[in-house]
Amino acid sequence: MNMLSKQEYVDFVKEKSPKSPMWRSMLAAFFVGGLICCVGEGVSDLLKLIFPAMTEEDVATWTTVVMIFAGSFLTAIGVYDKLGHFAGGGSIIPITGFANSVVSPAVEYNREGVFFGVCAKMFVIAGPIIVFGIVASVIVGIIGLFL
């Protein structure tokens, strides 16, 4: 083990370790992501059709809720992880992916009970998103005071 320096080995690993298939994964992300967004558009169009009196903002909110429900349900029945394995970013970035990151630990840890399992572990992955989001919104709000 004297012939190999640490740096040399780190360089070897960096150079030779297998990389993600760039084009295939990006294409998959593009298609699945685009499709999920189209579903979202479809839901909002449908809501507008059924409830013509609804304001634009309410439609947007309801669309989000419906999409979150879909993401949560697909996670719970064990479909979303397979979709994620195929699409990567295409299923992480839509709001359904956010729902997946909340529901998956909740479903995973229900074996530890409701209190310290489901409730405590629910935000293991999504916690940073909520914390960053709220902190950012307060910063933006305070900046807004001076505009």
């Binding site: 189209c38 970013g89 992480i92 992916g97 990151s101 940073p128």
Partner: peptide
């Protein structure tokens, strides 16, 4: 909708491939 939504996700996938970010960091 398809093109723009897909492009955003595609950008995310590029970040994942290049930086090996976990899904929470991407979000």
């Amino acid at each position: 909708v398809f093109a723009v939504g897909g492009a955003i996700c595609c950008l995310g996938q590029l970040l994942i491939n290049k930086t090996k970010m976990s899904s929470a960091r991407i979000l």
